[in-house]
Nucleic acid binder design. Structure first.
Lengths: 203, 203, 203, 203
DNA sequence: AGATAATCGAGACGGTACGTCGGGTCTTACG
DNA sequence: CGTAAGACCCGACGTACCGTCTCGATTATCT
């Protein structure tokens, strides 16, 4: 995840193998307690039982560290096989909402996105570590729905991006901006809208 | 916008009436040049030709100031009357995307949302100043579509919230997270998805 | 004391006559509680029940105000007639020491002297308001001693200055720098030294 | 001079050894140019080529810093051996007057004394760093005069304090309060007064 | 075994911005 | 005009973190 250069490592004391995980865990812990803006790297280092030097040797700054700490959270997402497209969508959206309900995800994710608007390297890191990695969910769900015959065998690749933006964007907006819970009722209404559209939604 | 108490202002020198606008404009200018994280209140004060104390007398901190500075940007949004619901949606989404393309909106908006995850007062301020204020667009669009007969005369109030989250969330996610432009082509695809849903989208 | 211009006062509301005394009293009170460096003019104004404007209209700054407030303290000094030069000296020195034991004199006096090292106008004000005004004590004491025949009828004017510097300097140094009390025992030893000198002091 | 704890310094980067001297020199330089009240710690740090934090790590505030900066000035005092007590006194008093003629001593010394009237720790620091340290001059002068037979072999310890207060006080008062130069003529008259007293001074 | 070399904890370093405080000025409405 | 109130600009305060650096002490691999 961070920019190691394992090739040139021949001699000298090797880096502590446990430090990385300790630092990322300490980062999430600090995010929960303090939030993004009050999180300091000195504090993270102290929590991780590590010197500040060690931290800076592995990450270039606060942004990169938090991206890595947050990215891991989303790896636990999985699209369930509930027998229908609607049920599958509802399942994964609920999982996503559950992650966004955790404070380390809430403040960490939005903050690095905000920073990324002025930092191309950071944006790329986010894209690689989070966005592209989770598009697998949309792909898998579509494949399954096509196998079931619920969706036509289409192959427009931009549709995946569109759906990802709509699903992720709606859940994020609901939970973080509107600050309302994405509970089962909301998820059902959202899924219905996604499947049949506005025109038929009122049937 | 900021917490004035105009009732109790009887004595002493009155607050400068021009300072507010100058400060908000300076804030947007600084957001463009520096972005959220490098924006300092001292710098904003200097740009506005105002003392730091004057700034702190009116806003409690960076977050509140930026919320107010950004909120004004969205007031220029208007839902056009293009004759059909699809065309109306496309029009307002394009306007929204245009605002989000401006750097002062990009970094400012996301940053305050990030901070609001740990600050209830800030979240309320965002909700009042930005979110609720712009829901008027969804309401007006729906009314117009119902008058045209494009939508059934429905009155579920949560539908407005849902649509707002889906539209705003999708555009924000597209432009800021996926970091792709919300151009005409994308907007058309998104509007189609919104109107007819996934099931019919591939016709 | 302060720079009034009573000639040109013809029209308009007359200055409050009680304000001056209230301000000087408030200054001494604040000196006691806070000391020189923590004394603020805003606080003095509040204590005196007066607006800051009123204060600045009458004094140009903190230094001038404190000089005036402190100068009044020394006006109560009087050289007693105890029948002998030694007794007279001891009496006036004890009075002087008593004034220097009061906190408003301690911190106020030294502070304005310190400031006067960089401010000629302030130094002149101190000289006029305090130093020259109290040299009357030395003159009177010498005249009385000459009348008694204790001192030869000398007329070197610089001797007065010398004695004043020695007496005032010694007491100030004893109380403020060495921070020891100028009690009766010390005053007796000092007077003996002053009268008969080091050579005979050990008899 | 400042509160080092050299015992506990085992780990971490050691403090810069050159910084102390640079800071004290910068302090004296700033005292000359600006005087006490306009001297700022930020400016001193800049002059010394040092960060403000480094300065605050070693001194607790302006007062303590100036005490140390000024105290060094008096270390150059030495009582000369001119063959007689009178000549020795005149010599050291002239040296003392020369130091007090320097602006860094004038405003710095009086200001810290003024502050010390409200700050016991500061008073103690002044006493240790300046007053007690220079009493060596009186002791040495007395010993030499006793060896010469000019003074009786007396041993009252309070006499040293008394003489110190009288000499230091008189010179300080002459130069800073009366604001007249302590030139050779004045020093001669003062020494005569000190040796033979008022009674015989008019011979 | 000893040399070499990169890592480690610790903490001082030069900076930058913070949010507050006080100084002295100015602008109101009132007397 | 004087006054009380209080906003104004300005500059310094002392603190907190930043990211870098310099230590002595480890802990590996390579002679």
């Amino acid at each position: 995840m961070q920019s190691r250069t394992p090739a040139s490592r021949a001699t000298g004391r090797p880096r502590s193998t446990t430090a990385d995980a300790a630092i990322l865990a300490a980062t999430r812990e600090a995010l929960v307690e303090l939030g993004w803006s009050k999180l300091t790297l000195g504090d993270v280092a102290t929590r991780a039982g590590v010197a500040k030097t060690t931290l800076y040797r592995r990450w270039t700054g606060k942004n990169e560290l938090v991206v890595d700490a947050v990215a891991e959270l989303f790896d636990e997402l999985e699209i369930p096989n509930r027998g229908s497209l609607a049920a599958d969508i509802e399942g994964v959206v609920l999982q996503f909402a559950a992650i966004l309900a955790r404070p380390e995800a809430r403040s960490g994710l939005m903050a690095v996105i905000a920073e990324s608007t002025r930092d191309d390297a950071l944006r790329e890191r986010i894209r690689t570590s989070i966005v592209e990695r989770q598009k697998r969910l949309v792909l898998e769900g579509r494949n399954r729905a096509q196998a079931r015959g619920e969706l036509p065998p289409e192959s427009d690749p931009t549709t995946v991006d569109l759906i990802f933006d709509v699903v992720a964007g709606a859940v994020v907006h609901r939970t973080l901006v509107s600050a309302e819970p994405a509970d089962e009722q909301w998820v059902r209404a959202f899924t219905r809208l996604l499947l049949v559209g506005l025109g038929q939604a009122a049937d």
